[in-house]
Write a protein that binds this DNA or RNA. Structure first.
Lengths: 220, 220
DNA sequence: GACCAATTGAACTATCCCGTACAATTGGAA
DNA sequence: TTCCAATTGTACGGGATAGTTCAATTGGTC
């Protein structure tokens, strides 16, 4: 008669296995982001995220505390990315008109290319931006984008190509609205009007329209 | 000795109480709408809706089948309302420029005055407009708004006040984007830029900007 | 008044789902 | 090697949650 071995040869992942906390974090974050983007904060399931990770649910709680902590981390990463994008623009090198056109085009493209970001912002707004408010990593007041626009706008005023009386915030809101809406409301636009804004032709057409609209708004 | 009354005086709601299915439906719908708008589809709780109703949870399932059926009913009502609003506009009576300005102003106001509608549309888009797609009561193709714009646009072309080459869809998308974004993203705008778009002064300023922007877009 | 279909109430269930207890393993410091 | 703190796996608990069961009540019709 053979007794079962006392330790039933519990398999290690590989012969000699190294810990990789950063890798684990990144893996979890990527999966979590996809789940939150797809299902929202309430709709996402921690068990589902864990299952799609190469790690166990225990890790999520170890690294992120709870579901909201995980969501906050996803949100922080998304905002960090767009801040990086914004900083990468060098509008000061361009004449005012071209600067505004370039900014609008890039903003439009960033939104169209990153629907995940757009959906996260939608989800966060459904929650009244409660997590943006409590996050310590997301600097609450981000005025660099506005400052960039102000610099260009004043240059355009000085050169006499822009009309007076505009608020940089207003310019920013217009650019954002024209970039955000097509992506955020893509599904309902398709249902109600039968137009697929994600199709290359429609997207390109809309992009040109956005740039033209913003230029007509600011130019004399 | 007095025996307890055979039926222990189970209290009727009032002396003589009448059934009112339509009232029950309306009551449930109003409460459900508030809950869905506040918490989203996944976040809303049927028990919570039932508790805030003057009826029991049983009624919700009796009249609406399940949670999604209730949500669909809320959505259908919201879309029915904005269709009514759209039909109430009589742009044909106005000269083209004024017609576009009026349409933009009214659309802006409708969104600002009905954040519930805006949030429902956001929520529906998070769910990829799946319920808009399956609803039988919401006519999937709603082209009346587009047709209205096309009529005005062609009138403006004929009179030589509008520039050529625009797509009515594009005009509609621009008006919608400029009306929707301030409301849908109100919370994140406040967090990130410290601006409260719901404040009367900011709202009025933005309204004027939207009208001006659309006019500059379409006019020669 | 009797009967039936529409409506309603109260308690219940099965499942889902977030989070935790506890033990085990690992890497590195001494 | 030894020991400790940082990680990680397994199994489970407790409460929330959508939806149901079953019977009772109601209003209208004959």
């Amino acid at each position: 008669m053979v007794t079962a071995p006392p330790v039933p040869a519990k398999r290690r992942k590989s012969a000699s296995w190294t810990q990789d906390p950063e890798g684990v974090r990144r893996d979890i974050l990527a999966v979590a982001r996809a789940e939150f983007v797809e299902n929202g904060l309430s709709g996402a399931r921690v068990d589902e995220i864990a299952a799609k990770t190469s790690n166990s649910k225990r890790m999520i709680y170890y690294y992120f505390g709870d579901k909201e902590g995980l969501y906050r981390a996803v949100l922080e990463e998304a905002y960090a990315r767009i801040r990086t994008f914004e900083r990468s623009l060098d509008l000061a090198a361009l004449p005012p008109r071209e600067a505004i056109a370039t900014l609008t085009g890039f903003t439009f493209d960033y939104h169209a290319d990153n629907p995940d970001f757009v959906r996260l912002v939608m989800i966060e707004n459904i929650h009244h931006a409660r997590h943006l408010a409590t996050s310590t990593k997301i600097s609450v007041l981000n005025l660099s984008a506005i400052d960039m626009i102000r610099e260009v706008y004043e240059r355009g005023l000085a050169e006499g190509v822009f009309r007076e009386g505009l608020d940089p915030i207003d310019i920013h809101l217009t650019i954002s609205a024209l970039s955000f809406y097509n992506v955020s409301n893509q599904a309902s636009i398709r249902q109600v009007f039968g137009h697929d804004m994600a199709a290359p032709a429609a997207r390109e057409r809309r992009r040109r329209s956005a740039i033209e609209t913003v230029l007509r708004m600011v130019c004399r």
